[in-house]
Simulated scan of single mutants.
Amino acid sequence: MAAVAPAVSSGSTAPLTNGSVPTVADKYRGAVVEDLQLSPAFALPQDEHLGRAIELAYDRDFSHIPVLDRKRKPLGYVEVAALKKKYEAGEANPTDRVAAYMVKFNRSVSTHPYTVITPDTPLSDLEEFLKDKIFALVTDYGRKFVLGVATAQDLETFVSRRGF
């Protein structure tokens, strides 16, 4: 883990000691995704039953869960609240597969370039990525395994722990 120096409060635009206004770089001070200390990734296989997926999501208090193929390649994600709503409305059967209800990742590189997020990705880059995304999958350097899931809330927690 990288050593991290404390900063000022996140809602603050108070000048730093040199009189300048804090920037994103000041907020994170060189911290990377690994510094977030994310919980290990939890993902579902594409053939998991819907009932089990909802149960596992609530046990772990997750709102979105990545869905992987048999080779552990990310295919998409399930939105737990939407699954539960369909389930309660009788629009989904507990033995249905999650793949039928997942939001698929758009793999078209030309229209949606793939952004690699690893433990070494600077938090300022992660913040930029999360501006229009729900979450980021953190992968190993070879992109073979999902190591964690990062959200804007993880960044907010990190900043508040540091007192920025």
Rank of each mutant, 00 (worst) to 15 (best):
A41I: 06
A41R: 02
R29P: 01
P119V: 09
K84I: 03
K144A: 13
P45N: 10
A41N: 06
R107P: 00
K27Q: 10
R70Y: 07
A136E: 00
I65D: 04
N106C: 11
L83P: 00
V24I: 14
R161Y: 13
P22Y: 14
V67M: 09
A89G: 03
R60G: 15
R70F: 06
G51S: 08
D154T: 05
R161H: 14
V103D: 10
R162I: 12
H49I: 01
E48F: 03
S39C: 01
E91W: 06
T23E: 09
F158Y: 11
A89C: 08
T139K: 06
L44Q: 05
E79H: 13
R161C: 05
E156D: 08
A89T: 03
V159I: 15
E127I: 00
I65A: 07
P74Q: 10
A89Q: 15
P113R: 14
G142H: 11
R143N: 13
L50D: 00
D120V: 07
E128Q: 10
P22K: 11
L137P: 01
G30P: 05
E156I: 10
G142W: 05
L123N: 03
A100T: 04
L68C: 11
Q153T: 15
A31R: 02
L44A: 08
E91P: 01
R143W: 01
Y114G: 02
R72H: 15
E88C: 10
G90D: 05
T139R: 05
V32Q: 14
S160V: 12
P122G: 08
Q37E: 12
A92G: 09
P94T: 05
L50F: 01
L147P: 04
D125A: 15
R107E: 14
E88M: 15
P40D: 11
F62C: 09
V24H: 10
G19N: 07
S108C: 06
H112A: 12
T111A: 06
P113N: 13
L126Q: 03
E79N: 13
T17M: 08
R72P: 00
A136Y: 01
K71S: 14
P66C: 09
D132R: 11
A99T: 12
Q46A: 14
I65R: 02
L38V: 10
H112M: 08
V146S: 06
L56R: 07
E79C: 07
Y141P: 00
F42T: 04
P45H: 13
P66Q: 09
L126T: 02
E34R: 15
K73R: 15
S160Y: 12
V138Q: 05
L123W: 02
T17K: 07
H112C: 08
L75C: 08
A150D: 04
K131Y: 06
F145Q: 15
T23A: 06
Y114C: 04
P113C: 12
V24D: 14
P22E: 09
P66R: 07
Q37M: 08
I134N: 03
I117H: 04
V146G: 03
G51R: 02
K71L: 12
G142E: 15
D140L: 14
T17G: 08
E79S: 03
A89M: 14
L155M: 10
L75I: 11
G51E: 05
Y114T: 10
L137C: 04
S108D: 15
V159R: 15
T95S: 11
R143L: 13
